[in-house]
């Protein structure tokens, strides 16, 4: 297994997603991190937004992430060996008013990552730009 400070954003996200999933926290990566992955980091995002449709208790998330060294700081989880940080925005996972039925799955050597499809990712970013000027 690679060291965390050597992992790319995708590898790190897959490692976290798999670890969460093994502990019954099933979530999908959303937001700018998906764009980073699909564009080989030509668009850089440091935050990993994981969305759960059925939210787990915060205590459980804190406990599960602490096993891989992520510590809670305000609403985020940080790790001393990586610049990337994790957030769990409130669900549900949706594009516009519609639920995301089939997330994309990418396998890295560090694990399996569930994330928005390229099309949904573009729609998500366009909506952020249109509604929030982000």
């Amino acid at each position: 297994m690679k060291r965390m400070d050597e992992m790319s954003l995708g590898e790190l996200a897959a490692y976290i997603c798999t670890h969460l999933s093994k502990n019954d926290i099933h979530c999908v990566l959303s937001g700018g991190a998906c764009v980073s992955i699909y564009t080989d980091n030509r668009y850089e995002s440091l935050d990993l937004d994981f969305i759960e449709n059925m939210a787990s208790k915060r205590k459980k998330i804190v406990s599960v992430l602490s096993k891989i060294g992520f510590m809670e700081e305000n609403r985020y989880f940080i790790h001393p060996d990586t610049k990337y940080f994790i957030e769990f925005p409130a669900g549900p996972l949706a594009i516009g008013k519609e639920p995301v039925r089939e997330p994309n799955i990418i396998t890295f050597e560090t694990g399996e990552l569930r994330l928005l499809s390229p099309t949904d990712s573009v729609k998500d970013r366009l909506a952020a730009f249109y509604h929030w000027n982000d």
Binding site: A90, P92, A94, K97, E98, P99, A128, H131, W132
Partner: peptide, 24 residues
């Protein structure tokens, strides 16, 4: 805002809130 039901933007020193148009 944490629940994504409202969102905010700043105008000068004031944080202005609206209902989040992206809330499903």
């Amino acid at each position: 805002e944490i629940g994504n039901i409202v969102f905010s933007k700043t105008s000068g020193k004031t944080r202005i809130y609206s209902l989040n148009p992206r809330y499903p």
